[in-house]
Design a protein around this nucleic acid. Sequence first.
DNA 1: GGCAGATAGTTAGGTGGCTAACGACAATTG
DNA 2: CAATTGTCGTTAGCCACCTAACTATCTGCC
Lengths: 191, 191
Amino acid sequence: MPLLMLKDLPRYECLLEAAREFPDLDPSATEVFLHLLRAGDEAFRVVESHLAQHDITQGRFGVLMALWGNDRGGEVRPPLSPATLAERTGVTRATMTGLIDTLERDGLVRREPDPADRRMMTVKPTRQAVALLTRILPGHFQRMAALMLPLTESEREVLVSLLQKIANQASTLSPTGDGSAAPTAEVAARG
Amino acid sequence: MPLLMLKDLPRYECLLEAAREFPDLDPSATEVFLHLLRAGDEAFRVVESHLAQHDITQGRFGVLMALWGNDRGGEVRPPLSPATLAERTGVTRATMTGLIDTLERDGLVRREPDPADRRMMTVKPTRQAVALLTRILPGHFQRMAALMLPLTESEREVLVSLLQKIANQASTLSPTGDGSAAPTAEVAARG
DNA sequence: GGCAGATAGTTAGGTGGCTAACGACAATTG
DNA sequence: CAATTGTCGTTAGCCACCTAACTATCTGCC
């Protein structure tokens, strides 16, 4: 996707050298950060290129998965609104409007007004969407499995727990993670 | 950034349940995949929001870092071309054209024709770019360090090695990783 | 009832990513 | 030398992401 800054990551010696000039630079932290972004980016691209073979993008796929997940599990659940989809897939409502536009144009989704609240719409997947997912998912799962093939089960557990620590820490640092001023002030104290 | 598909990751029991329906679904692999993308995305956003405070984006920051890195280390190195910058930052040449456009508009880089090869341009950072980086970098390093604070040094080493395994595996699976047909055939064998 | 504030969806404008195709030029090869 | 082949930068068009602002509607409080 769009987030890799350096194709060839800097060697560790270069980080050590740069750390002499910048006391704030933590070489091992920087190294983890760069490897995290690179691994995430490459894993993302593997899946993305597969979805592209079915003429679908990650954003649209996420919407279809959210809709599909809502329609499974026996119980009858109310259809989802654009706002709910935006929240579950992690994009803004404005972005969701665009995604639903293209999905609707391609016949994968239908918009219908919500009978109870006239501000709201409901979004429902069409049969073609279900058929498309049925075609895509096996290969999608195979690729995720193939990506993790080099890792043993215990390595996977370790990796998940370490990634969770980073994600939790990011939540406390990020503006969306609430905390607002406190972490910024602390981090920027020396800036 | 744009790569998270599910804000709240599915619980492991749901993955186990879904695996009964989809024999290709490897629950632990899927879990690692989702955590990897989420952690990468959140870490990315932490840094991105800091850069945004200085009116700069990740893509532009990457270009400036590449230019800055080229001008350091004593030796006189020839200025970089857009094609080289594209390769080092991992985007296409077309994308680099756009990035350089906005950087030039904002007075952070200058384009000059290459005297030796009239197809080529050279891209040089301005003084303002150096000043901007000097302002940004301390906070940038602080944020990377803060993100990794919950990890011990040995955990960082383990994490890097596990991430490397995934990145290597992605290279063998992805179309850019050469291999072209072979991995696809293997992965799709059961599809 | 009536008005203030919150919420849903959209629109407008900007950015950055991609592919495909181009013109200009360089390098190779007959 | 001429022709082919390849490379560089750009352009055009698409998509997805964002923020900010808008309209319509609902909710709650006087």
